[in-house]
């Protein structure tokens, strides 16, 4: 996250005077920040529930792990789409 804001900031610095670029950079960083909230909570919930399930039923750990990765993949996709949108906003 820090890295991204740096990218955006560096890009904004480089384009000093260009209002549009500054706006794009700012909104890009803002967009990614927003896009990361939901998936962050979601991934936390998925891992928490998966750990609970594995602790309760260690014999089902393999199945739980597979399903957990599937859930993480679907949830994480939202954050990654946000990341892609950032790049689109900044460079398109």
């Amino acid at each position: 996250m820090e890295a991204l804001s740096k990218i955006v900031k560096a890009a904004a610095d480089a384009a000093t005077g260009d209002e549009k670029n500054i706006a794009a950079a700012g909104s890009a960083g803002f967009a990614y920040g927003l896009a990361a909230i939901g998936p962050g909570i979601g991934i936390g919930m998925i891992f928490g529930s998966a750990i609970e399930a594995m602790a309760r039923q260690p014999e089902a750990a393999g199945m739980v792990r597979t399903t957990m990765f599937l859930g993480v993949a679907f949830t994480e996709a939202l954050a990654l789409i946000g990341f892609v949108v950032v790049i689109l906003l900044k460079y398109a």
Partner: peptide, 21 residues
């Protein structure tokens, strides 16, 4: 779309983090 973007964006983000540090 999500299949492609998930892989691409994960690897790109990782690559950018490595580059930045």
């Amino acid at each position: 779309f999500s299949l492609a973007v998930r892989l691409f964006a994960n690897m790109l983000a990782g690559h950018l983090l490595l580059v930045i540090f």
